[in-house]
């Protein structure tokens, strides 16, 4: 009950803030929501892995970066549009994620939690440096016409393409909810996430489930990599900021709460875009996530101590 009441309060506060911002500076709200969609769509797969495999994947952003590079070269070679490449990129990254899981993560599952953290940290460095090694740190971009589509309402005009990220994030959250509650595999994954030993006793292959969940998360973030390519230039370090931002969102929503990621992303996206709107505060926009993550973690520990 307590959590429900808290969520309601948060939602009401968020809505009130959003309406205020919308009246005062509509573009801040619009870009904030678009940015939030991007953050949420990248954070949701991380939330899935953290909720079920119980691993903080510090190489999360690098998976997206690798998918974006693969898409870039495929598109360059064939003249294909990155949008068409979303599904193939997802499939390839899923296979890649599965292999990474089998070769590395699986071996560290029994080790202390901190070993897993260092392991994925090392994997992230390895991925970004491998890309750096083969393709140098040069930025790469595919220019597309439809990305700059804009709409003018009254006196404000804004780009609309990035609303696609909001749609993708919402679809991901809803799709995962259906997957976890309606399909056998999803139910099994949920059970493994709650209690791996108990799940193993009732006959669920825990290792296989972990592998599949990891692959699904890789697929989602891989598809996002292809989609990301429509929006931004890419370079080897493009993914790593998203790892921290995703973790902030997941930690704020609470582990295992996937729709919550959407909510916290909107709050932070708007806060960031608000800071970015003024010249004096523009440089501080990046700090929002880091302050938040520390506040949330400290707040949670204080609460644990009380109870």
């Amino acid at each position: 009950m307590a959590t429900k009441r808290r969520t309601t309060i948060l939602v009401v506060l968020g809505l009130a803030a959003a309406i205020l911002v919308a009246i005062w500076k509509p573009t801040v709200l619009i870009y904030g929501v678009q940015q939030a969609g991007l953050y949420a769509a990248i954070a949701i797969p991380m939330g899935l892995v953290l909720g079920i495999v119980h691993i903080v994947n510090l190489a999360h952003g690098e998976f997206m970066m690798i998918a974006a590079y693969a898409t870039y070269f495929a598109c360059r070679a064939t003249g294909m549009d990155p949008l068409i490449a979303v599904l193939p990129a997802a499939a390839v990254t899923a296979a890649f994620g599965w292999v990474v899981y089998k070769l590395t993560i699986r071996r560290a599952l029994k080790a202390p939690e901190l070993n897993q953290l260092i392991l994925t940290f090392g994997l992230g460095i390895m991925f970004s440096q491998l890309v750096n090694l083969f393709f140098t740190s040069q930025t790469r971009k595919i220019s597309l016409d439809y990305v700059s589509a804009s709409v003018t309402i009254g006196e404000t005009s804004f780009g609309v393409w990035q609303f696609v990220f909001v749609a993708v994030a919402a679809a991901m959250a809803y799709g995962l909810k259906l997957f976890l509650t309606r399909t056998t595999l999803g139910k099994a994954a949920l059970a493994v996430g709650q209690n791996p030993k108990g799940a193993a006793i009732v006959g669920i292959d825990v290792d296989r489930t972990y592998g599949i969940v990891f692959a699904i998360a890789a697929a989602l973030v891989g598809g996002m990599g292809a989609l990301f390519l429509t929006r931004s230039a890419i370079f080897p370090a493009v993914g790593s900021p998203f790892t921290m931002k995703s973790f902030s969102l997941v930690a704020m929503a609470g582990i295992g709460n996937i729709p919550g990621i959407l909510g916290s992303a909107i709050l932070l996206g708007i806060a960031e875009s608000l800071l970015r709107a003024f010249r004096a505060t523009r440089g501080w926009a990046d700090i929002v996530f880091f302050v938040l993550i520390i506040a949330v973690i400290l707040g949670r520990t204080l609460k644990w101590r009380k109870s």
Partner: peptide
């Protein structure tokens, strides 16, 4: 020898050490 990405060796070492010789 490698103008770009020579740090890859650090990533590889972290991964290998954690997995095979903690």
């Amino acid at each position: 020898r490698l103008p770009y990405g020579h740090l890859v060796v650090y990533g590889v070492i972290i991964v290998v050490v954690i997995l095979f010789m903690p």
